[in-house]
Amino acid sequence: MIISKLKEAIICFKAGRVTLPYPFKPHDPAENFRGRVTVDAEKCIGCAGCAEVCPSRCIIVTDPSPDKRVIEFFLERCTYCARCAEVCPEDAVTATQEFETATNDTQDMHIKVELFMSTCRRCGRCYEPPTPLDRPMETGMRPPAGGNGNGEG
């Protein structure tokens, strides 16, 4: 009994101080960390692959006019799986190291990308497959038939 208590005391003393001074000093996550995602509008080609794979459906694509595409990220619903960054053919979407995302204004968690698209007036499509646009159409990346399936469509 006494011996085991001594052993327990030794374990505690040997450990020393293990707590970190966070949040008074910054704490950097690991290199591969999947933090808040960000979009580089210069690189984005508007393929919408990210929207199709997002399990929490927080990326919404709308085409308000034939030559304009709007991609919106509602990151308050994001589950940080970084599938969007993984499938992005142009590496426009990336997972950052940022994890301190607490906010009392949800606008802080919104990203909106507006792109001017050109349409082929003759054939309706401009590329021969395979192109980066075809990659999101691979098995498991396609949307289900009949609506977006989120129960609101």
Binding site: E31, N32, R83, E86, G140
Partner: peptide
């Protein structure tokens, strides 16, 4: 785990057909 998978919990590693990392 954070180093390997990108998060200390909820690794997000699996897909049907294999693993991501």
């Amino acid at each position: 785990c954070e180093k390997i998978t990108g998060n200390r919990k909820t690794y997000g590693m699996n897909l049907v057909g294999g693993v991501r990392r």
